[in-house]
Design a protein around this nucleic acid. Structure first.
Length: 274
DNA sequence: AACACGTCCTGAGCGC
DNA sequence: TGCGCTCAGGACGTGT
């Protein structure tokens, strides 16, 4: 569920919470079997190291210390939080104890997330990061011409294409439906059927919806929490996602449909999207 | 090469 | 009340 806006929100929150390069006292792993096993280096390489900054690439977070980095993906249900006194929860799989006494915990009931340690210069070339497409908020990389080029000879539905992290990163199931609705394009349209003009509008709307969602602190449907623990509120601003059988907010005449595409729920309006 | 689909996981919601 | 089923989906890996 965490897509780019949610991960960006967590990143900003963590950078606020971890201002002043707080040092790590120790890292405790409660259970190691996330989607991939947590690496042993998590326990051994961070003692006494200051957390310099937290960066985001696609839906991944990178916690940087002088020599080693922690790579974190929130999967479906992951979140980072400072533990409050008396706060006891199942599914806190990892705790980073800081020298200032705080405990930063990784919580992830469904364990689809990943938590791994790499040398700073290696983290960017891992299999997780090395094949990723451009950042959608980077105007120079994610251009209408670029998307149009990626659409060429692609028979797959356009929604699948924009959710493909090799084409553009950070767009997941919620914002793909939203951006296509905003652009008036049916999610099922064959990608190579889009005109350059439509690609232009789609690029614009992907960028727009992601920026708006960041401003709202992300979308909380169930699990997502900001780094401080509070919910996002972009769910109040969704046009189609989760609104199956409800009247379209734009045309006020058709009901929102839910079609399965590549195994994912896909919400759209048959009146507004062609 | 391009695409479809299975897989991992837990909790919520539902029907009976 | 409680059981069992289905669904939610990010991204890799495998099969066609």
């Amino acid at each position: 569920m965490p897509e780019l806006p949610e991960v960006e929100t967590v990143k900003r929150g963590l950078n606020r919470l971890l201002k002043g390069d707080p040092k790590i006292d120790r890292i405790k792993l409660n259970r190691k079997d996330l989607r991939t096993p947590m690496t042993p280096a998590l326990k051994s390489k961070f003692k006494g190291q200051p957390i310099l900054r937290i960066q985001r690439r696609a839906k991944y977070l990178v916690f940087e210390t002088p020599e080693w980095s922690i790579l974190s993906h929130l999967g479906m249900s992951g979140s980072w939080r400072i533990k409050e006194p008396g706060d006891k929860r199942a599914h806190d799989h990892c705790s980073i104890f800081l020298e200032d006494g705080r405990e930063l915990t990784y919580y992830d009931p469904r364990r689809f997330g990943i938590l791994e340690a790499y040398k700073n210069d290696k983290v960017w070339s891992t299999k997780w990061l090395n094949h990723l497409g451009p950042e959608p908020l980077d105007k120079r990389q994610f251009t209408p011409e670029y998307l149009n080029d990626k659409c060429k000879n692609k028979k797959a539905p356009i929604k699948n294409l924009i959710m493909n992290q090799e084409v553009v990163v950070g767009v997941g199931n919620i914002y793909a439906s939203e951006a296509l609705f905003m652009t008036g394009i049916r999610p099922t349209r064959q990608a190579d059927n889009l005109s350059l003009k439509e690609c232009e509008q789609l690029v614009k709307n992907i960028t727009l919806v992601l920026k708006r969602a960041i401003q709202s602190g992300g979308t909380t449907l169930k699990d997502f929490r900001q780094a401080g623990g509070s919910e996002g509120y972009f769910q109040q601003k969704l046009y189609v996602y989760g609104r199956e059988d409800q009247l379209c907010l734009e045309c006020q005449s058709e009901k929102i449909k839910n079609t399965r595409l590549a195994g994912r729920s896909t919400f759209w309006c048959s009146e507004c999207q062609k």
